[in-house]
Amino acid sequence: MHTSIPRGCVSVAEPEFRSSITTLAAAPLGAPALTDESSLTKVSVRAQVGASPLGVDFTRATRRDGVLIVGIRPDEWLLLGNANEVETLLATTEFDASVSRIDITHSRLCLRLTGVRSASALEKVCSLDFDDMMFPDGATGSASVAKVSSDLIRDDVNDEPSYLLLADRSFGQYLYDAIHDATAEFANISS
């Protein structure tokens, strides 16, 4: 599936990809920044438990050719990136016949929370331990975030803590608002 303009068959207005987060709020000064990255291409690669079709272990995330490869479940790997890079990676990787792939771009929302206090903000909505040793850069885990099952990936940006959060598309606005509210406490606090 695509989020860019697909080929046209019937002459109609150009379809436009729409995120499920429709209303963005301004980040309070100094608070962790919350951005919508839902339009990234997301492909789920499935194999047997214990297999390693992409060379990435469960709970680990690594970037390869611009694509973030995430061991999201013992039998599932998530590819996250822009459409061309994901397609290239898939085309150049050899998969066993038992591996299946499915584009879940439209099923999952994707938020990014960045800032020195982003772990503290997440602690207000999620029971995971975000300590640097327990959830280091390049780690991933799934848990309830504000009561919505979510996948969290630590993906630091320029040495600043940053988390990607994926969840079911239909919760978009609710989840955005809940996390945005959790960040408010950390406005104007530098560390």
Partner: peptide, 12 residues
């Protein structure tokens, strides 16, 4: 059995 199940309720 080799079956991969993916919920796609809101993908569509």
């Amino acid at each position: 059995w080799q079956v991969h199940v993916t919920p796609v309720t809101t993908g569509f």
